[in-house]
């Protein structure tokens, strides 16, 4: 929590106009706009609250969401290499988003790109689940393989759409790389409605997730309704991921390395691991996004997370016996 607050404050100060952390803290602390502020302070205030803060809050929420989904997926699949997009959520979202950008379809709603991405993400996850399910049982290995196959298939569709994207190619590529630019409070509100309630739901299932780690057969003899719990975990984490990806594009690695790193720190108990990872994910994405926008030209945050995350991950692999997981 403390780390997250510090990161937020520092991040809000970083940018073309640099503002001291103390000032930021003061602005954040007195959220109500007071009339007696003078010009410079008013400028800082606008910069912090209207320009930078929405983006920071979005980054925090998305990081929170991706890390949460990552923890659940790794526990669910009992595989440390699982990440939130393992059942095709990210690919699904990408197809929806790219299609909206490339194809001449007009949605009547305001957030058509995000809406399309979210919808296609959830449909994809559900489709993968249906493909992998037989007689009410969903073996996780089948689910994993079905997810990989569907991702490959959707990858082909995305490539095809890219070929026909013409002038919008740049926008498509930018989206695919994962970005947090141009965020407004509207997007923040959308994701804030979806993510926290589902997080609470997942937290309520932390104990079940622990028991599931013993194996499905054991879990069943310890009072877990395995198939029902799996369905719920899969649905909740897919929706969480879909909400995040729909708004920001594909930001890789957060959902993979943050849970991993936190498991090394706090252990495998999901009652601790889940909140710890969620907060760490939020801090991590705020920090990397700050880095992404603090250079001379802003780069998509997905590039930064991958560029920082992969070496860090390799470092963990070498320094700890992560293979034991």
């Amino acid at each position: 929590m403390g780390v997250l607050a510090a990161v937020v404050v520092v991040s809000a100060g970083v940018g073309p106009v640099s503002i001291a952390p103390a000032t930021v803290a003061k602005i954040l602390a007195s959220a109500d706009p007071s009339p007696l502020t003078y010009d410079a302070a008013r400028t800082s205030r606008v910069i912090v609250l209207d320009v930078r803060l929405p983006r920071i809050v979005l980054a925090a929420l998305v990081g929170f969401a991706l890390a949460t989904a990552g923890v659940v997926m790794q526990g669910f699949f009992r595989n440390p290499m699982a990440d939130p997009s393992i059942v095709g959520v990210s690919s699904g979202a990408a197809v929806g988003a790219v299609a909206t950008i490339v194809l001449p379809i007009a949605f009547p709603l305001g957030l058509e790109l995000q809406g399309a991405a979210f919808t296609s993400a959830v449909i994809t996850a559900f489709g993968v689940y249906l493909i992998a399910t037989r007689d009410g049982h969903t073996p996780t290995a089948t689910l994993l393989l079905a997810g990989v196959a569907v991702q490959t298939f959707l990858g082909a569709i995305i490539s095809l759409l890219l070929l026909h994207s013409g002038q919008s190619l740049r926008r498509v590529v930018y989206w695919l790389m994962g970005h947090l630019g141009g965020t407004t409070w509207t997007e923040v509100r959308v994701i804030a409605v979806v993510v926290p309630p589902l997080f609470v739901l997942l937290l309520a299932y932390a104990r079940d997730l622990n028991v599931l780690l013993l194996g499905e057969e054991d879990a069943r003899t310890l009072g877990i309704e395995v198939e029902r719990t799996k369905r719920l975990l899969l649905a909740a984490s897919s929706i969480v991921t879909a909400a995040a990806v729909a708004v920001t594009g594909v930001i890789g690695f957060v959902g993979l390395i943050v849970p991993h790193a936190m498991r090394l720190v706090v252990g495998p108990d999901h009652r601790v691991l889940l909140p710890a990872s969620a907060l760490a994910g939020a801090s991590f994405l705020v920090a990397t996004d700050t880095l992404a926008r603090s250079g001379p030209t802003e780069i998509p945050v997905g590039i930064v997370t991958a560029a920082l995350g992969a070496p860090f991950f390799l470092y963990l692999l070498r320094s700890q016996e992560v293979t034991q997981l």
Binding site: V211, P268, D269, Q324
Partner: peptide
């Protein structure tokens, strides 16, 4: 047992 649960955590799961 996959994942590094300690002994107490595993036994406590019996109370589930």
């Amino acid at each position: 047992v996959a994942f590094e649960f300690d002994v107490r955590q595993v036994v406590e799961m019996g109370r589930n």
